[in-house]
Design a protein around this nucleic acid. Structure first.
Lengths: 156, 156
DNA sequence: GTTGAAAAGTGCTGCGA
DNA sequence: TCGCAGCACTTTTCAAC
């Protein structure tokens, strides 16, 4: 499905389309076409090209977790017993639904996760029962977010 | 715009609509209606209600930053000289476009940021010139993501 | 609150330049 | 390769249940 393009054959038009759609994916193609002074068909062709290039991976709803009862966002520094257990740990952690992001990284932690829970009891359950009990995980450090001050997309 | 609803008057239908749309926001209402065996109009009414409740905040494109030349994802632990400088620091950090998330949090760091940069030179510039030079910021700790193993929405 | 259908607007495709 | 025009589909609205 994914064709072989050079990573950098995006022109100004492509970038401008992305910039608009990254802020609000529900803006119709026809309106973008008007703004950029091209036809709607052109927007369509460019979008299709960028999907084939693997730049665009679909779209998703921006929801506010707190409004549906998920009150706690936390970051988790994970220490592995051995670095070589990484691939295994990832597979196990994929089953923990509360993890929304997981990174393999430099620095003191072997891995770094972002998790979203309903309340403190839920967080404790996830930490104790779902994560710290996994094979290869030595210990974890928890950072709880008290306020999300900024949340946005990159600027092109 | 945002009406006063209790935070928990979501029924099963609302939850199911959210679950479907959170995975792919481009699925048409008519198709959701078929799956859940209700009419398209009902989906529309429910979505409007959830927007008014502030649960849904729009939609956005899922893009792959690496494919458009943003190769480095990093997390930044930020130490403030005084905790009281938080509000001020947030205002300043809003001007740093490379920051995509910023949290006020518990633990050793006063604040915690996620940043996306083009390359190591870009990262160094952002750290030295844009962030560490700001008033009130004592020092920072950088964690670079070598691989994003998991990236998904919460499961309802 | 839900339904079903009609009206308005959008996305997609093929032809021409 | 791009732009235009027609068709199919989706969203939105509304009267009735």
């Amino acid at each position: 499905m994914e064709k072989n393009y050079s990573n950098y054959d995006l022109d100004n038009l492509d970038i401008q389309i992305l910039s608009i759609l990254m802020q609000d994916a529900s803006i119709p193609y026809t309106e973008i076409a008007k703004k950029l002074i091209v036809s709607g068909g052109t927007i369509h062709v460019r979008m299709k090209k960028m999907e084939e290039m693997g730049i665009i991976h679909g779209s998703n709803l921006i929801i506010n977790p707190q409004k549906i009862g998920f009150d706690i966002t936390a970051f988790l520094g994970i220490y592995l017993e051995k670095g070589s257990q990484y691939a295994d740990a990832v597979e196990q952690l994929k089953n923990v639904k509360e993890i929304v992001e997981l990174h393999y990284c430099t620095g003191q932690y072997s891995m770094f996760a972002k998790i979203i829970c309903r309340d403190t009891a839920h967080l404790r359950k996830v930490l104790n029962e779902d994560i710290q009990s996994l094979k290869g995980i030595q210990r974890t450090e928890t950072i709880i977010s008290l306020e999300e001050s900024i949340r946005r997309q990159i600027t092109l």
